[in-house]
């Protein structure tokens, strides 16, 4: 009787409902096992000389010797340079293109839904299909790109994927094609959150589109820029797929990024050196995370400072 009375208000005010733990257990359990555990295990592995085919080396901690080896590893430094170049090719264009597309899509009155659908389409295509398709596009003799270039009068168009000067750029183009959709969506969400009132007011005041962009859009989108840069900086340097699928690091290691280098060490060469590969990944992951956070903080820190759009925004919100 007494327990019944205590149970009555359980739907709203009750402090602790044991059922809830049962409900979240499967999801949280899977997440802890397959998503969280590998983060910690990977960090630990980075200080071992674990070679997969010798399972007894699993916990062979070797202090900093992975990092000493890395310091003297010419392939590591070469791969780092390739990684930086790839990031420099991909990141600015991805951000710029996705920002322009988002601004345009947010301003059209017709077809916006279709455009959003279209821009996101490359993101959902199977990864291998996209890159293999670009492999065909970049084909020296029969690829769409070179045939078109020849039709336009170019005598000897580049041998894209096997030319040391072009291979990394070709992969970058493919990666940009595939990667633009998601940041565009993030920018769009930001733009829709700004709403139309500000722009209407600005238009009534006679502000040109350019002025609106500079004093409303850019300042108010700073958080989204910060987010896009954060996500880009922490994912682009890790890119493996296009290299793995199309070039395997060739020609002459000009597409051998750090991600691919560590992947090959871990899964394709010799004793499957998971330990050393994890160490490379840890260095790469930590350094790109640091850069990403610095960029993120510096942009976010600026947000509270009052750009013209921000001041206007506050004033308008203050007077209903």
């Amino acid at each position: 009787m007494g327990s019944r009375a205590r149970r009555a208000p359980r739907q709203v005010g009750e402090r602790n409902n044991a059922w809830a733990y049962l409900f979240i257990a499967p999801a949280i359990g899977l997440y802890l096992l397959f998503s969280i555990w590998p983060i910690f295990r990977g960090a630990a592995m980075a200080f071992t000389d674990y070679r997969f085919i010798y399972s007894e080396t699993r916990w062979d901690f070797n202090g900093l010797s992975n990092y000493r080896e890395m310091w003297g590893d010419d392939n590591f430094w070469a791969a780092l340079r390739v990684t930086l170049r790839f990031t420099l090719y991909v990141l600015p264009f991805t951000v710029l293109i996705s920002f322009v597309l988002a601004v345009v899509i947010s301003r059209v009155t017709r077809l916006a839904g279709f455009y959003r659908w279209m821009i996101y389409l490359p993101v959902i295509l199977p990864v291998a299909v996209t890159y293999l398709m670009f492999g065909e596009l970049f084909n020296t003799r029969f690829g769409l790109i070179n045939v078109t270039l020849q039709n336009l009068g170019m005598e000897r168009p580049p041998n894209w994927l096997s030319d040391v000067d072009y291979a990394l750029r070709a992969l970058s183009i493919a990666d940009i094609w595939r990667g633009v959709g998601f940041p565009t969506l993030l920018f769009l969400i930001g733009l829709y959150a700004i709403g139309t009132d500000l722009y209407e007011a600005a238009a009534v005041d006679g502000a040109t589109g350019w002025q609106q962009l500079r004093s409303i859009t850019l300042p108010l989108l700073k958080p989204v820029f910060a987010l896009v840069l954060l996500l880009g900086l922490s994912s682009i340097p890790m890119t493996i797929d296009p290299m793995l699928i199309l070039t395997g690091g060739a020609p002459r290691d000009t597409t051998m990024t750090l991600g691919l280098y560590s992947y090959q060490i871990a899964f394709q060469f010799g004793d499957l050196r998971l330990g050393y590969a994890s160490a490379i990944n840890l260095v790469l992951g930590l350094s790109s995370a640091v850069v990403a956070l610095i960029v993120f903080r510096s942009l976010r820190g600026d947000i509270e400072s009052t750009g013209p759009g921000r001041r206007w925004w506050r004033k308008r919100n203050a007077t209903p």
Partner: peptide, 10 residues
Amino acid sequence: SGGLMALYEL
């Protein structure tokens, strides 16, 4: 992506 090696082991 750094967790791929640990995932492989798991």
